[in-house]
């Protein structure tokens, strides 16, 4: 094991970590507006990849537009899911909502399986084709640059949205005290819908951007959803920066552990982290003492 190998593990960790981060952002946003974990988050990732490949391969739409279409369509699914399944549950009982998201996840998965079939689809072409980039003996895959870039844009964009826009302020107010927010005239129902739209878009982005390496399939949402959930808990379900930090940390932990101990334990790491954080530091590694969520 050389230093070069260690650097390669770090690159791998940051690249899968960025993917977890996008999922974790989705969990965090929905948690902020509703106070529940959306277990259908992984399905948005799955839909992004599936729809992207279908649009590109079956409809022959150029790559950029296929990717955008997949993200838009998944966002629409997210909005529909909120309007049809979450909003009718007016009292906002967290347990009921969580079970609704679990049901929604199974529904989306089964419908996709029946509509598209049980086998994985083909992969998309690389967003910027060409050989990998070698720096000091460490290989960086071109698609990883896309993943990092998109994650960076997402976290900066969300931070700006929260800090600088009226709508972002409404979302923050909603996360601090929903009843209070409603009393001062904020349309909390609209905030919840918007948070599902954002979460679905982020999930779909992750799904599309990884599909040049990983062939999408109808059941792919579950395992990545668990990783994103672990990352979100690790980050403390707080602000976007913490979610991204949680994702990257999880990715690094996984890859360094599989590099130096054994790859058998790679998935176990996510669960150990999840349980460890829940027991020892329920507010997350990066969650402050403040109760503010978002």
């Amino acid at each position: 094991m050389t230093g070069k190998d260690l650097l390669q593990f770090i690159v791998a960790g940051l690249s899968s970590g960025a993917l977890y981060a996008l999922l974790a952002l989705g969990f965090t946003i929905v948690y902020a507006s509703t106070g529940v974990i959306n277990f259908a988050q992984g399905e948005f990732y799955m839909l992004g990849g599936m729809l992207g490949v279908l649009a590109f391969d079956s409809l022959g739409i150029p790559l950029v537009f296929a990717a955008l279409l997949a993200i838009l369509a998944t966002t629409a699914v997210g909005v529909l899911f909120e309007l049809l399944a979450i909003r009718p549950r007016k009292d906002g009982d967290p347990l009921a909502l969580i079970i609704i998201t679990v049901g929604g996840s199974i529904l989306i998965q089964s419908l996709t399986r029946h509509a598209v079939g049980g086998e994985e689809l083909a992969t998309l072409p690389s967003f910027s084709p060409g050989p990998s980039i070698g720096i000091a003996g460490v290989t960086i895959v071109r698609q990883s640059l896309w993943i990092w870039g998109i994650t960076a844009v997402a976290v900066v964009g969300l931070t700006l949205l929260y800090r600088r826009t009226r709508f972002g302020k409404a979302m923050r107010a909603c996360s601090i005290d929903r009843d209070g927010a409603r009393l001062v005239g904020i349309d909390t129902a609209r905030v919840v819908t918007a948070s599902f739209a954002l979460a679905a878009a982020l999930g779909a982005i992750a799904g599309v951007v990884i599909s040049p390496t990983v062939p999408p399939v109808f059941y792919s949402g579950a395992s990545i959803g668990l990783k994103g959930f672990a990352a979100a808990i690790l980050g403390g379900l707080g602000n976007p920066v913490a979610a991204v930090a949680g994702g990257l940390t999880l990715g690094l932990l996984e890859n360094i552990a599989s590099g130096f101990i054994s790859s058998t334990f790679k998935d176990g790491i996510a669960l150990v982290v999840l349980l460890g954080v829940l027991f020892v530091r329920p507010q997350g590694l990066f969650g402050g003492r403040s109760r503010e969520k978002v």
Binding site: G13, V141, G259
Partner: peptide, 13 residues
């Protein structure tokens, strides 16, 4: 593992 999105660590080893 099923669902792994990145294999570079294992391949590097």
């Amino acid at each position: 593992n099923p669902g792994d999105t990145d294999m570079t660590t294992q391949l590097t080893k």
